[in-house]
Simulated assay, not measured.
Amino acid sequence: MLPAFNITDVFNVFLLGSALLGFCLSFFMFFSKYGKNKSLLFLNLMILTIALNNFQSWALALNLFQHKFMLSYIQIPWHFLSGPFFYAFLVNYLDIVNHQKKILKYFIFVFLLMCIAQISFVIFSSTGGATEEELNYIYERYTSFEELISFISSISIFVYSYYVLRNKEQLFQKILSFDNLKWIYNFFKLTGIVYLLWVFALVIKFSLNFSGFIYSYYPLRISTTVIIFILGYQGIKYLRILKERKHIREESENETIAEIQEEKELSTKYEEHFLNVDSYVKTNKKFLQPKYTLQNLSKDVSIGTSTLSAIINNNAKKSFVDYINEMRVEQAKKFLLNPKYESYTIASIGLESGFNSKSAFYDVFKKHAGCTPLAFKNSNC
């Protein structure tokens, strides 16, 4: 005959399993590539506190700690630290630590005080001659009020963390250029459900006078565990993406700076070459040769044609053909305005200026001067 289905046993197995998975995830995160990163470290600590809380709940459910050693109970309020650790993760991930309140150290101090107060309370209560059942009730009532304080503190930090994320965007514009933080906003939405379940569990616990309430915590434990593992996975994923994108952008910026520097050096070098080339062409009046090409100039100045073309393009801001033709047009303008050549034909002036035909002279002259050679001669342009 199969044993009867016991939901408590199933849930206890879930608690142990989730705790062990939490420890494994925490171990993996700590020794991962980015494990020493502060934001991931605090996220890791948050997951660890949830895992410890679940492990402790499992141990208490099986009476592994009660009435052992010098204390009647051991029930450390790990849940008190989950909120502060999440806040520390958030401000470190957003890189706004220097702009926000450093509240974690105060919560750790209060956490230690709560542990000391609980131990003192248990020792004091145990010496009063109360029965085991009475001690159970007293201790459960004490830890319930302790949990209520933890809930108020946690939801306060949660609300403040959301306020920082929503209203302090001017402080983390750099992060927003890498991450739209949608996954963190989704986490806040899911966590809001967890707090509702926590409220439900506390209401049931107080209304049942601190006994028979264990079932009300099942949805809370399950949802908390699931969400924490989702956050752990996404934290590792998006932190890796953030780091990789930062590295890519830094490398890209360094490459851009190097390219700009190289272009400046090349531009300076090209400028020096251009001055020499320009001087050579004008001094030797190479532009007056109708068939003078880029290849001819390349041989004359001992510079490769592609390099020479780049030098002219970068400094004269025009192609070799336009560069040479502009000199020819300027030479033709001088002839056309010189009274000595007033009776000379336009064709003679064009050919002597370096053009290989009358039609080419007219076309090029109009392109550069905006009018025909004859109109220019008559001062109509």
Results as ranks from 00 to 15, higher is better:
P3T: 01
P3W: 03
L15H: 04
L16W: 04
A19L: 01
N37V: 02
F42H: 06
N44V: 03
I50N: 04
F69L: 12
L71S: 13
I74D: 11
S82M: 08
L94H: 11
H99C: 14
I108V: 11
F109C: 10
M114F: 08
I116M: 12
I119W: 07
G128N: 08
A130D: 02
E132G: 07
Y137M: 05
I138S: 08
I138M: 13
S144G: 15
S144A: 15
E147A: 14
L148K: 13
I149Q: 13
Y160G: 06
Y160R: 06
W183K: 01
K189D: 03
G192N: 04
V194R: 01
V194K: 01
Y195R: 02
L197F: 06
F200K: 08
K205R: 15
Y215I: 09
L220V: 05
R221Y: 10
S223R: 00
I228D: 00
Y233Q: 07
K237Q: 03
K237D: 00
Y238G: 03
R249T: 13
E250I: 10
E251D: 15
E255I: 15
E255A: 15
E263S: 11
K264E: 12
L266H: 13
K269Y: 15
F274D: 09
N276V: 15
D278T: 10
S279D: 15
F287K: 08
Q289E: 14
Y292F: 15
T293F: 09
N296T: 12
L297V: 06
S298A: 12
D300F: 11
I303R: 13
I303T: 14
T307H: 14
I311Y: 09
N313Y: 00
K317Q: 07
F320E: 00
Y323G: 00
R328L: 00
F335V: 06
N338R: 09
N338D: 13
P339H: 10
K340V: 13
T345Q: 07
Y362S: 04
D363V: 11
K367H: 06
K367Y: 00
H368T: 02
A369I: 03
P373M: 08
N378L: 14
